[in-house]
Design a protein around this nucleic acid. Structure first.
Lengths: 168, 168
DNA sequence: TTGAACTTTCAAAATTAATTGAAAATATTT
DNA sequence: AAATATTTTCAATTAATTTTGAAAGTTCAA
């Protein structure tokens, strides 16, 4: 396998993985491409590498920047914008975790909280069973939430520990 | 909020959550419906509750059974099949974790492994950088894999502990 | 201010995924 | 074996998402 074949293969696989994770195939491919790129790439570079349109590159790169895992870089003397992916996969994981937590877990927690306010006859067994199910979902969601918070906190303190050591 | 409104609301929210997790909206809704149902439901019950076609119910219920979070139950004297969701949300979480691990993490691990076999000039800095990126991805994926295995193992042993206590 | 280089937007087109519903298959009862 | 009840399949349709590309917008050097 040559270098280019290997890159191609990884980009492909990353795209497939992405699409089962609520990330569009193309967005995941752009990310993978930037991840294995030896240096920052311009819109045109990406267009050519993945054979997709300018608009498509623009939108996906912007989404990746919204997720905080791709950055715009300006090369001195160049007018074009270049993009690079954070090469530290742990930072990427933290970012994605934070974003998904915010976008998905937190909304469902709010819904569960709101549902808990249901005023109904607790002696009705159907109401009781429903209340229990919701209670369980809440416990579960809260547990997931703190697990994720721990993960984020652990990774971040590890990150800062590294920084502190450098500047000491 | 009445009981029915609360159920409706939860089903809706669960469907939205599902669609950002690579699960189709309808499949997540069927799951939520069964989760809050006071008893097992027939295909027709589900059709009516969610206003979807027979074929659609059939496919989604079958998928949920493939995921191992919904079971077929036969009521004595009834010809129809009924379905119920596992009410233990932890078991659901384990099942989903297992399945997603198998369907998503393991394939990407295989790809990364295969890519590692790339035969190329290690002195070429581009090759070296790529090899490092792949190495990092591998470390990350392996770490995720063992984290998930731990989660599954912890939950399962907890589950068996409960069973053992019962039969002792 | 102009125009060239580059980026962004967005309506339309293409693609992909989900859904329907009726027909075929299967199972059950008489 | 025939009639009946129920489930499954799948081609056609519908819906949702993604992509395109050309036009509009922006930036900046001259």
């Amino acid at each position: 396998m040559t270098l280019d074949e290997a890159k191609q293969y990884l980009i492909q696989a990353w795209g497939t993985l992405g699409s089962s994770w609520g990330v569009s195939r193309t967005m995941a491919q752009v990310h993978a491409l930037l991840l294995v790129a030896p240096s920052a790439m311009s819109t045109e570079d990406i267009m050519e590498a993945l054979q997709i349109s300018r608009g498509n590159v623009n939108m996906n790169v912007r989404d990746l920047m919204d997720w905080g895992i791709v950055k715009k870089v300006l090369k001195p003397g160049e007018r074009k914008e270049f993009f690079e992916a954070d090469k530290d996969i742990w930072k990427v994981a933290i970012q994605i975790t934070k974003e998904r937590k915010k976008r998905e877990l937190e909304p469902i927690l709010r819904v569960l909280e709101e549902i808990s306010t249901i005023e109904a006859d607790i002696t009705d067994p159907e109401v009781k069973q429903f209340a229990e199910t919701v209670e369980n979902l809440k416990k579960f969601a809260n547990n997931a939430d703190s697990t994720l918070n721990n993960f984020i906190r652990a990774e971040e303190s590890w990150f800062w520990a590294g920084i502190l050591k450098l500047i000491k």
